[in-house]
Design a protein around this nucleic acid. Structure first.
Lengths: 143, 143
DNA sequence: TTGACTGTTGCAAATCATTCCTAAATAGAA
DNA sequence: TTCTATTTAGGAATGATTTGCAACAGTCAA
């Protein structure tokens, strides 16, 4: 069993456990998301899903993405001025750097930043529900 | 001269220096922005600006906001799933906490976080153009 | 296996924030 | 005041996402 198949399985199981119906379209989306190495947007996911379920509609993709997000099996990222991008949650937590010249998305993680966030919220009497941390960057000496 | 008048003046001067025409509509927007204690969105700014320049159109508000942003006298914040919010730059840098229950926006600043960001980008060979750092929070023991 | 009950889909139309178009108005230089 | 390049008002256009509805299909009990 490949890593992607295993990942698809885990995502599917989580949904089944939550009592969410596994339709052909949702199964397709899950597998497409499981094998995505990038951070695709809805239209791209729709394109990829059509290879599995021809005729799947874009609204179903949007509806399913919202459902998967609510179930916590995927994350929705809203980067500056572009359509939302998605990724599954079978990875450890990370934040994103977006290259403003190329649009490329690079993942990174920092224990220290996570700790600081909690500390800051705590100090003001809040607890963190989630956060959005994006660095819009440019390659150095890249001229 | 009040603090707000002084702030309006500074914002206006920056524009004049950059060769941007100060129209009645832009002047109105600047004063509205200068006296805003909150983080209003375009429609709200339009509402407030109408009190100064009756008949100002929403598209002018949007166009001006884009221009002011380009000139660096205001910042545009795109919080999760809501219209963009704006604030003038006559304050020191800060990030935002958004109360997910009330929508309230709280500002905070952390030297350490700023330093860490630069460090992270640096380590990966990038320089930061700008960043987006938002904590979506909930008041503790607020039941 | 078969219903049937309910949630889900496809399609088109609707929504929402924001941008674009054009003729008429105007800021700012001379 | 005059001239001219910008800017404006207003409405239509756009792009992403959501929604309404009738047909359809998972799932579960029998």
């Amino acid at each position: 069993m490949t890593k992607i198949a295993r990942r698809t399985e885990k995502l599917t199981e989580a949904l089944r456990r939550a009592g969410v119906r596994i339709t052909r379209q949702r199964a397709a989306l899950l597998s497409v998301l499981a094998e995505a190495e990038d951070h695709p947007e809805a239209v791209e996911l729709h394109r990829r899903a059509e290879a599995v379920v021809p005729g799947i509609s874009l609204s179903t993709v949007y509806r399913s993405l919202t459902e998967l997000e609510n179930q916590g099996v995927i994350l929705r990222h809203q980067f500056d001025g572009t359509p939302a991008r998605f990724e599954h949650t079978e990875t450890r937590h990370h934040d994103h750097m977006i290259d403003v010249d190329t649009g490329e998305v690079v993942e990174f993680a920092s224990e220290r930043i996570e700790a600081l966030q909690a500390e800051i919220a705590e100090a003001l009497g809040y607890e963190i529900v989630h956060h959005r941390f994006e660095l819009y960057v440019r390659k150095k000496d890249s001229l």
